[in-house]
């Protein structure tokens, strides 16, 4: 499983969140809005240079600065993300653990 920052993921690629390198309060806030370790994040739109749109919790779109994304470490999924059955990713995650 390749660990990398969320920033380097391409559009449609996903990964499971490993950790967030940020100041305590910001880290907590990000965790609470859905960037909790283990959950799946997918890059939706990477058109802009300063911000990127990612999907968390299966459907929320969150715009996040690329600098922030660089501090979010994910386990990248090897195959392209197939959204319909997210249960599968959950299982993968459990296997890893």
């Amino acid at each position: 499983m390749a660990q990398m920052s969320l920033r380097v993921l391409n559009e449609q690629e996903s990964g499971a969140i490993v950790k967030i390198n940020a100041e305590r309060h910001l880290r907590k806030h990000l965790t609470e809005i859905g960037f909790d370790p283990g959950s799946i994040v997918t890059v939706i739109n990477k058109g802009a240079s300063d911000l990127m749109v990612v999907q968390i919790k299966g459907c929320c779109r969150v715009a996040i600065s690329t600098d922030m994304a660089a501090e979010i470490i994910v386990d990248k999924f090897e195959e392209p993300f197939v959204p319909p059955r997210r249960g599968r990713h959950r299982r993968e995650r459990q296997c890893r653990e």
């Binding site: 910001l26 809005i33 779109r61 969150v62 715009a63 996040i64 600098d67």
Partner: peptide
């Protein structure tokens, strides 16, 4: 401050 904002559908 880093930018984090939800984009509602």
């Amino acid at each position: 401050q880093p930018f984090v904002m939800e984009l509602p559908p």
